[in-house]
């Protein structure tokens, strides 16, 4: 046995990022198992069977339990620890998401091991690269532990081809209830407040339009919506300055402390380009900057820049993209 990947899903489907994480995990060129935790995850398992080739994942391990309903770090880590003890995995791999980052170090602690989070490049089976200082430097690290605990940044890897799936037949169920200690101090879930949006998910959208302080109000953010609608496959993001000013909710924040995105097209509207923001989007394929300050640092990294009044440029761009697409 060699690599265990912890799946992230929404109760029905594997998250889009996982196809990139599975590709990263496959670079170890060893057998890979995919662990699905949660309550009533049958649909997720079917989705994996339909979209993940068995050349990528040789076995699906299913831990289905009411104790795993919200996949708390405390509960999931107990299941993973047990699997490591049983199968002596060489690598434990998660997505560098809020959930992956919550779970991975907790498991690693049980094995007295220092994890490597936010890995962006696999140099060899024991050597990896990760950004430090908000992406101002790249650190190359070597891991010598018996089990390596890794979180990968999905945006740094391509997705596996999910159309050639040919039914993973090896499915193992584990008795999760018996693995999770039902102690008094188990975390209890109270509520989720999930932002509902018609738009695709920020980290996996083909295009992203982000607004900054230059938009001046929450209401003005709507002009980005129009452009996103015309472009299609577009998610809306925001700079930390815009979030702090209350123009956009925090789950839209792109940057060092928010989400890291790398879409095909990133349009920064009224964003000056603080280093903390650039850390979250500078790997986008094409970057467009719209800002009235010609000295704004965002222009130093943008593929195309437009200097001027965003309240004139964005509506004009919306109309002209609409015309061009017809």
């Amino acid at each position: 046995f060699s690599t265990l990947v912890i799946a992230e899903h929404n109760g029905e489907k594997l998250s889009k990022s996982m196809y990139k994480i599975l590709n990263a995990a496959s670079k170890f060129k060893e057998e890979t198992h995919l662990l699905v935790t949660g309550e009533n995850v049958g649909k997720v398992v079917e989705n994996i069977k339909a979209t993940v080739p068995k050349e990528v994942v040789s076995k699906i391990i299913v831990a289905d339990s009411s104790l795993l309903k919200h996949n708390s770090a405390q509960a999931v880590s107990q299941v993973v620890s047990n699997l490591i003890n049983q199968n002596k995995y060489k690598q434990i791999v998660v997505d560098s998401s809020s959930s992956g980052k919550d779970i991975l170090p907790r498991v690693a602690a049980k094995f007295n091991t220092q994890p490597a989070t936010d890995v962006t490049n696999i140099v060899s089976n024991d050597t990896f690269q990760r950004p430090v200082y908000a992406g101002n430097a790249i650190s190359t690290i070597k891991l010598t532990s018996a089990t390596k605990f890794l979180s990968f940044r999905a945006t740094s890897f391509d997705a596996i081809n999910s159309e050639q799936a040919n039914n993973i037949s090896d499915i193992q169920k584990v008795d999760a209830d018996s693995l999770i200690a039902k102690k008094d101090n188990l975390v209890k879930h109270i509520k989720d407040e999930i932002a509902k949006s018609e738009r695709p998910e920020l980290t996996s959208a083909r295009f992203v339009i982000s607004g900054g302080r230059g938009l001046k109000s929450k209401d003005n953010f709507a002009i980005l919506d129009n452009l996103a609608g015309v472009l299609g496959e577009t998610a809306i993001g925001a700079s930390r300055a815009a979030v702090d000013a209350g123009y956009a909710p925090n789950d839209l924040q792109v940057g060092q402390t928010g989400k890291v995105v790398a879409p095909e097209l990133y349009i920064a509207v009224g964003i000056s380009g603080a280093i903390q923001h650039l850390a979250g989007m500078k790997d986008s394929k094409v970057i467009v900057a719209i800002n009235q300050d010609p000295e704004a640092p965002i222009f130093q990294i943008s593929t195309y820049g437009l200097v001027g009044d965003l309240f004139k440029i964005v509506p004009e761009l919306t109309e002209k993209v609409k015309d061009a697409k017809q």
Partner: peptide, 14 residues
């Protein structure tokens, strides 16, 4: 209340 990728999550413990 925790900031998670999809929004906010509230958990409790002793």
């Amino acid at each position: 209340t925790r900031e998670i990728d999809a929004g906010l999550q509230t958990i409790g413990f002793k």
